[in-house]
Write a protein that binds this DNA or RNA. Structure first.
Lengths: 246, 246
DNA sequence: CGTATCCTTGAAGGACTTCAAATGTTGTGG
DNA sequence: CCACAACATTTGAAGTCCTTCAAGGATACG
C-alpha cells in the first residue's frame, strides 16, 4: 500500500531537475514500498552498513552526517520529502556515513533489486538518478564553499535560501513560510559552527528583518536581502526553469 | 593519436573501485581523444560554461574550485592522472564551478557524443561512471567533515593521507615519495585555511617527523602516525581491496 | 642574475568556541 | 488542562585558534 502522495513527491522532485515520460512516471509510482514510521533522532542507516534496500522519504526531515573521533558532528545534507537519501548504496555497497531522522518521519523502503529492475525497464531513469546524485554533489560543494570561506552570517543566510528553494520545488512552501524543523544545534552541525554562535548570527538576521524563525517554520521577510546576505545563486541546484523564481 | 599510457590510467583508476570486462576496457581505450597541453594556473572550464566535451587528465594536477563574492577561493577537489574532472557536464549541462590546472597538464578532450556512444555500447560502464561520481561525492563529504569540524593540523594530515592513497591506486607513488606539486596557498584554499596557518601546521607535522615536503614531493616518514594525526580511514574512497593497504 | 613566486617568521587582532547558567518552549502523563 | 521534565534558546564572559598585515629570506626560472 504505497503512499501515492509521498511517491508523487519523488516524481515532482525529479521533474524539477529533468523531464520524465509517462512510462517512467508510472514505473516510479509502482515501485513496491514498505512504509514505516520512524521517530525523531533515530539512525536509519549507519556508517559501515551494507543495506540491500534504499528508502524514499515520504514525510519529515532526514540528515546525513559523520562524527570525528572526538565526537564532533558534521551534517552533510538535509533531505526533504521526495528524496532518496541513501540511493548511493545502490552502487556503493558499504555506507560511509550515517543517515538519521531529524523529525519523526514516514519512509518507504525499496529493495535494491526492484530499483535495478526498474532501471532495466526504463534505462533512461538511470540518467535521471545519476543526474540527481550529481546535483547532490553540487550541493555538497556549495556547502563546502560556505564552511571554508564564508562568515557565519552568510552561511546561515545561504542555507535558509537553499532550503527555501528546494522545498519550493516540491511544493512544500506556503507563501513565504518554509518548514524548517531543525534545532540551532543541528544548524551548527551542518555549517561547522557552535550553537552559541549560530544563535547570535540568527538573531542578527532577525534583527535586520530578513527572517523570522520559530516553531520549526522559517518566514522569509525579505527574499532579495536574504539572497544578498547569503550570496545565494541557485544555479548549483540545477533546477530546470520555473522553480528558480519564487 | 591517443596517449595509450594516459588512457591506461583511467582504466586503472576505474579498476581500483570496480571490475571491468575486456570489452569495456577496449571501449575505454579506443575513445577518441584530442590531446592538448595546458600551462599551469589556467582555467579549462569555467562556472556557467556549457561544454560539449569532457576531458581526461593524462599528466599533471587539476583542481576544481569556486570563488566567493569577496574573491576567497575554495578548492573542492584535486584531480590526478586518470581522472575525468568534468565528467559531470555529461548530465549537468551548465557547470557550477571552475576547473583549472595546478601544474602544467596534458589533457585529452572527449566529445560527449563519443561518451554517450560508448555507454550505449557498454551499458554497464554507466554504472561504473555513476559509481565514480558517487566516490567523488564521498570525498567531498570527508573534506567537509574536516573543514567543518577538524583542526588545521588534522585536516592537513588527512589530505596528505588521502592524496597518498589515491595516487597509490594509480601507481604514481614511488615508495614513500608522493607527488604533491601544490603550493601552501592552494592547500589552504582546499582546506579553508590561511596560507600562514597552513605553513605553521605543516611545520608542526615536519617537526614531529611525520612527513617531509619539498620540491612538490611529499615524503611520508611515518604512515601510521600520519594516519592517526589525520583521523584517516580510507573506507570513504571505496577502493576495492588491494589498494587500501600500502 | 634579476624578478617573480613561494615559504617563513613576527605581531596584533578578530571571529568563533567553550563554559556556565538563566530563560523559554514543548510535550506528556497525571 | 495543569505540572513538570526534557529540551531548546538565549545571554554573559573568557579564552583560543586562526586570520590578517607586514616584511624578510629562499627558491625557481627565463
Amino acid at each position: 500500500m504505497p503512499s501515492p502522495q509521498g511517491v508523487h513527491r519523488l516524481v515532482q522532485k525529479l521533474e524539477s531537475i529533468t523531464d520524465l515520460t509517462e512510462a517512467e512516471r508510472q514505473g516510479l509510482l509502482s515501485l513496491p514500498l514498505r512504509v514505516q514510521e520512524v521517530r525523531a533522532d533515530q539512525d536509519i542507516t549507519r556508517e559501515g552498513d551494507r543495506p540491500t534496500q534504499s528508502f524514499l522519504l515520504l514525510e519529515g526531515f532526514i540528515c546525513r552526517y559523520k562524527l570525528t573521533q572526538v565526537g564532533k558532528r558534521q551534517i552533510f545534507a538535509f533531505h526533504t520529502p521526495g528524496d532518496i537519501p541513501d540511493l548511493l548504496t545502490l552502487h556503493l555497497k558499504t555506507l560511509d556515513h550515517n543517515v538519521g531522522t531529524v523529525t519523526a518521519c514516514t519512509v518507504g523502503f525499496i529493495q535494491h533489486e526492484h530499483l535495478h529492475e526498474l532501471l532495466r525497464q526504463q534505462p533512461r531513469l538511470m540518467d535521471v538518478f545519476w543526474r540527481d546524485t550529481l546535483v547532490d554533489g553540487a550541493i555538497f560543494r556549495e556547502w563546502m564553499l560556505g564552511i571554508g570561506r564564508r562568515s557565519a552570517r552568510t552561511r546561515i543566510a545561504h542555507l535558509f535560501c537553499e532550503m527555501t528553494t528546494r522545498l519550493r520545488a516540491v511544493d512544500l512552501v506556503d507563501g513565504n513560510r518554509v518548514p524548517l524543523p531543525i534545532t540551532q544545534a543541528e544548524l551548527g552541525d551542518a555549517l561547522g559552527l557552535s550553537t552559541v554562535h549560530v544563535n547570535r548570527s540568527v538573531q542578527e538576521l532577525r534583527g535586520d528583518n530578513l527572517i523570522e524563525w520559530q516553531g520549526g517554520v522559517l518566514t522569509v521577510l525579505d527574499w532579495e536581502s536574504l539572497k544578498a546576505a547569503g550570496e545565494f545563486d541557485p544555479t548549483y541546484l540545477h533546477l530546470s526553469g520555473s522553480h528558480t523564481v519564487p
